[in-house]
Design a protein around this nucleic acid. Structure first.
Lengths: 332, 332
DNA sequence: CTGTTAGCGCCTTCAA
DNA sequence: TTGAAGGCGCTAACAG
């Protein structure tokens, strides 16, 4: 049985130091308003009593609690951990704590989390939100919001613009002689998915290539693996996947059918989070997940500081990273 | 420019409903103490005014804010996301929010985070803490603590007991004819690492096998990859890695040297988080990361509810999962 | 520079 | 069943 120390309050410190409560408060928040000796005496008293400012009381009084929220659809997707980590580090630099929420790809859960967080955070970052524009706008009326990979006018947002990278991917495949390719798509509600899909469509159309779209329930290893059957039915010789995780699943699905990559089939991922960790090393569209996390938080903190919301749209460029899963189309 | 709605307070609702503030409070916390009609009237008024209870004020008054903290060393390590997700889900079931902290394997950062969280959470779960026993004990005096994969008497803890699984791993290798193996170890401050290392040592000693220990700076893909040189120098024909990520790195390091797994070399991971996602599919010691997250949170919530700390030690058993990275020792 | 005085929004005895 | 009143711990004018 462990006994716990109780909360020492500002009054006890004030008594011990022989000053008013407000002076104690100042010693911690605006020491420059007090004489150095007084500050010293107070701090010393606080130290011996083991006083720690009560965060909640301070928050009630100031209306600021130094917390921000970060909501992601799937923390287990390797795209997010670096983003989360960077966000955390950036928040830390300004002495903010971050609440993390995982929606498991469910808009309903996302709505619930936003509501739950709203009361205890000063602002929120929604990464790859699966909510409708209306819901997001509604939430933005309640508290400062920054979006990641979601493009809604009037709401600050930071985007990974995959179009350039995806265009290069199509070009790369075309140069290798592929004429018929497939896109294994991501969540319907995903802005990134829409963006990637239309970039591919534009690229293939421009080059007279044939394109098939294969839907998946969610961007996971398993979904990729299960998509392989459909992919093969299209007669495609190469595939671009919504993300690396899906691509990795496809890699396995192909291996299970003894289809050798890249000899028999080429594959390109997006996000480049698996780096060279797959076998063969995955060709992928570059990633900025950490940058995006850092930037989103820094934007949010700016907004909190300035108390004003500019309509910022921060887009990061991408490019194709060629590794070992793409090669000449078979039979050429 | 988006305008934000201001906070409606209990008083406004009270006025609108023509009741006292305390009644409004009761309508939300103890509706059974009020007549159904009154509750109804209050709720209706609250609804139209868009009243939402102020979490901070409530917390100050009750001393409970319904938040718990979870601190992990590296969110990007695939061992943790399922743990975090399960923890979150479990907390959610009891209407608790979770603060997530990432220490980047740094004890200093961990200490800092605990301090920062302490004021705003009712309890804390420390997963794979890198802190000293003393620091942990000190923190446990401040607030309810539950440990994951750290065995300190007197502090509630839930452990993945890898010894059985690791013992099976050694046995498996022995049966395949390996006589000389290496253990690529994890962080020095890791309880799991110590446990796995001694289980391997016990197993190899009992069978008269030779064992080399290879240190690494941190359990990462990169560290595993770089450890390969040292591993090969030992003349071992098989290796057990601290975790799957390290094992995956080793897999790459071997591939880079044209050493074919499992024909030329066998490898076993721990945690089984990569499942069949590596190539070849990794033999590994089973994992309970999600269970452990769920159980830790549920233990913490129990403690918070009962206001008492029993000395619980919850250990989960493990076993070897054989896949494709282990085979007969070469030359036999 | 420092003390006094009000709250922040809610919960919770204590009476009625 | 309901109201009145005090307080949770701290901050923020306003005086002095």
């Amino acid at each position: 049985m462990i006994k716990r120390t109780k909360g020492v309050t500002i009054s006890q410190v004030a008594d011990a130091a022989g000053v008013a409560r407000s002076s104690v408060s100042r010693a911690f928040t605006r020491p420059d308003m007090l004489s150095p000796e007084t500050v010293d005496r107070i701090l010393r008293a606080a130290e011996t009593l083991g006083y720690v400012p009560n965060h909640t009381a301070r928050a009630l009084s100031t209306g600021r609690h130094g917390n921000i929220g970060l909501i992601v659809p799937d923390i287990a997707n390797p795209f997010f951990p670096p983003l989360i980590q960077a966000a955390q580090t950036e928040a830390d630099r300004s002495d903010f704590c971050v609440f993390l929420g995982n929606t498991a790809e469910s808009p309903k859960q996302e709505d619930k989390l936003v509501g739950r967080f709203a009361g205890q955070v000063e602002g929120l970052v929604l990464a790859s939100s699966r909510l409708s524009d209306e819901r997001i706008r509604a939430h933005a009326r309640q508290l400062p919001l920054v979006l990641i990979n979601r493009d809604i006018e009037g709401i600050p947002r930071v985007l990974i613009d995959s179009s350039a990278g995806v265009r290069q991917a199509v070009e790369h495949l075309a140069n290798l002689g592929h004429r018929r390719i497939a896109y294994v798509s991501g969540p319907a509600a995903s802005w990134s998915n829409k963006q990637r899909r239309s970039a591919i469509r534009a690229g293939t159309t421009a080059r007279g290539m044939e394109l098939s779209i294969i839907p998946t329930p969610a961007p996971t290893y398993q979904a990729g693996r299960e998509a392989v059957a459909s992919v093969l039915q299209t007669g495609a010789s190469a595939v671009v996947a919504f993300d690396d995780l899906t691509a990795q699943g496809i890699l396995t699905g192909l291996a299970e059918r003894n289809i050798v990559v890249p000899r028999d089939f080429s594959i390109i991922g997006c996000d480049d989070v698996l780096g060279a960790m797959t076998f063969p090393a995955l060709t992928s569209v570059s990633n900025h997940s950490a940058d995006v996390g850092r930037i989103a938080i820094s934007m949010l903190l700016d907004i909190l500081r300035s108390r004003s919301v500019a309509d910022v749209r921060y887009a990061l460029d991408t490019k194709l990273v060629i590794r070992d899963t793409t090669a000449q189309a078979p039979g050429r």
